[in-house]
Design a protein around this nucleic acid. Structure first.
Lengths: 236, 236
DNA sequence: TGTACATCAGTGAACGCGCGTTCACTGATGTAC
DNA sequence: TGTACATCAGTGAACGCGCGTTCACTGATGTAC
């Protein structure tokens, strides 16, 4: 019967979820290298080999965590973007950046898993890609919409180098309908956003930048101005 | 006798060096988590406990590697800077950025050790700090000198937020004699530089940005324009 | 509605591995007189 | 220059730990007729 069938499946889904939850908690205290299937089994009151019924291998569990993580940042970025007026391009940029940073601060080890040093010996399978680009898609769409609305007015209108044209074409998948220079600026802002967050989380700001929230806002405003985004509407 | 005394000491220094060399090579293949004192001893033909005569603990070895790493990037940045005409501020910026990236590409796992996810359970002792800031000092000095020479002409002259003032004061240790807005721009460029390199090394550019050298130059030029640095002199 | 069979979850033991660190020791190298 | 002593490097055995994965198994849950 399909009702009872889903009963078993529901338990399975629940336990699978419990495993990833515990794994995430382990990640938070031990880091990716300290992730241990045996420890998870122990915490669940299971024998260690039972985990393999749910994740055939440790890498499979890692992959699930990575996909979940990318989806979580992506969803946070999407929500932040959606909460702003479509035409408030500066406000959307600010909101997205803050959402990504807030998520990272709340889940530092998951962030490290996604954007930090690769886990040695682990190769991300191709099915992580769709999740991995969600946040980037949000940023790209913002740039395109701002450009199409004529709201992008960069103070520096240097054209992009010809050598960048091929990559610009590839990037146009995410940022359609804009000139190369706009793409170049977006990439610079994109790497700068994550560069900041990584520095903040990985300890490079220790004893140097202490008032992190305001400093981050300053950084994000800098990047907004650089891209030619308008100031956020009042009520930000 | 001091001559024979140095004989023993010379051997000791040599073996210490050999240990860190092997450790660096291990780092390159296994990553920081795979660093193993026993494996190092094995490769040296020593019994595993002998390593502890040179590094009392694994963390001590890690610390040595980290300090060496920071010094290596720092020295590369210093050399690149020194090779340019003092007044060629744009050229110096480009050269420093390229030197840091080149070093990172040549030593990806060491870069990850310095700028990637922190090694879980390891806390960097304070004696790493002096080495850690060498590259930053080079960048800060460039900004100050460019400003003092009147060569900084940023297209966007938005002032920095007041909330950034306290951190700007702290940062003035590295970038003296410049207004807050210049410091803010320098910090944005600084994080953007390393953000790019981390993205490139940690796999975020896979299938997206392929022609990395030109794209990086574009990024660095963007950041130069943003900061108001002049174009590099011909013969770059 | 009841029975025969198939699927699946979890067990427990085992394999084979590697790790950092301690400790008492031997023997060589360096030092002081 | 030679001897007595102190320092130091390296040995080998051991402690105690944790890990991922395989495998034959039991017993419960679900399915088909």
């Amino acid at each position: 019967m399909s009702a009872s069938r889903t009963a078993r499946e529901r338990v399975r889904a629940e336990l699978t979820r419990e495993i990833t939850d515990i794994a995430r908690r382990q990640l938070a205290t031990e880091g990716a290298a300290g992730l241990s299937l045996r420890a998870i089994a122990r915490e669940m009151g299971m024998v260690s080999s039972a985990i393999h019924r749910y994740f055939p291998t440790k890498d499979a569990l890692l992959t699930a965590l990575i996909i979940d993580g990318y989806n979580a940042v992506g969803a946070a970025a999407e929500r932040a973007d959606a909460a702003r007026d479509r035409a408030d391009f500066g406000g959307r940029w600010l909101a997205i950046c803050r959402a990504v940073r807030d998520w990272a601060l709340a889940h530092p080890h998951e962030y490290a898993l996604l954007y930090g040093s690769p886990v040695p010996g682990y190769a991300a399978p191709p099915d992580t890609v769709a999740a991995a680009i969600r946040d980037t898609v949000v940023l790209g769409r913002l740039a395109t919409e701002a450009h199409e609305a004529g709201a992008l007015d960069p103070p520096d209108d240097h054209p992009a180098a010809e050598a960048f044209a091929a990559d610009a074409d590839r990037l146009r998948e995410f940022i359609p309908n804009v000139p190369d220079a706009t793409i170049a600026r977006a990439v610079t802002a994109w790497t700068a956003l994550y560069g900041w967050i990584s520095f903040e989380l990985f300890g490079q700001f220790n004893n140097v930048i202490l008032d992190r929230g305001p400093a981050f806002d300053q950084h994000v405003h800098n990047l907004a101005h650089y891209q030619g985004l308008p100031d956020p509407r009042p009520g930000e």
